[in-house]
Design a protein around this nucleic acid. Sequence first.
DNA 1: CGGTATCCACGGCGATACTG
DNA 2: CAGTATCGCCGTGGATACCG
Lengths: 122, 122
Amino acid sequence: MKPGHLHPTEDCRAVSEVLSRVGDKWTVLVVQYLGTGPMRFSELKRTIGGISQKMLTTTLRGLERDGFVTRTVFPTIPPRVDYELTELGQELLTPVRALGDWARSNIIRIREARERFDETVL
Amino acid sequence: MKPGHLHPTEDCRAVSEVLSRVGDKWTVLVVQYLGTGPMRFSELKRTIGGISQKMLTTTLRGLERDGFVTRTVFPTIPPRVDYELTELGQELLTPVRALGDWARSNIIRIREARERFDETVL
DNA sequence: CGGTATCCACGGCGATACTG
DNA sequence: CAGTATCGCCGTGGATACCG
């Protein structure tokens, strides 16, 4: 972190790519839950609670595309689909949890800062 | 990470709050640059390179509101405004960098996964 | 059950012009 | 120089309905 340049054009693009995945509305939540073990579609939907069917599908497809989860279809009737974290997904969990832990530890400071700011501006 | 419940309604909301800040298009980039020391508005704009004036203002206001940066106005003509990371902002840098490092280390694996996925689906 | 298809509202974001 | 104001595009995400 020394050089005065810190060239964004390559590294930061990579970071942004990952962050736009991680930073979207539902990804972290889904990854968090899958971190406890494989789950089927309806199970995820029910557990998460506020997510629409469309967004859960979209989120899972994105995670699958990036190699974070696997999708296993059981050709039964009614159908059953399991989602599970890959190696890569498990590894992602580490920095995500670190950020999550930090967020939990400092959310109060942030909220206080907001209140102060909003009050000062009004 | 043992309990079978993992209650989202409080903790995960906090995490999402922080992540929606961190996950937006420019925040990480700005924080990254301010991590090297205080910078003035035009300096940030010039260095980052692709950001519009409006978005830089919006991003900085958001960071200021959350207590991550301070805004110092020098009442000169022409005016000059410095932005600097707060304690909180510095601390945020740690987990953000961890995620950034992970992203840089694994971006190749992710891109490969994407190519495989896109090819399989076509 | 686990999707896809369609429609639509909202907000993020950029471009441009103006101001103290 | 460091903003604010306004406009308009477009992607995200929700609601609803239908399908294998």
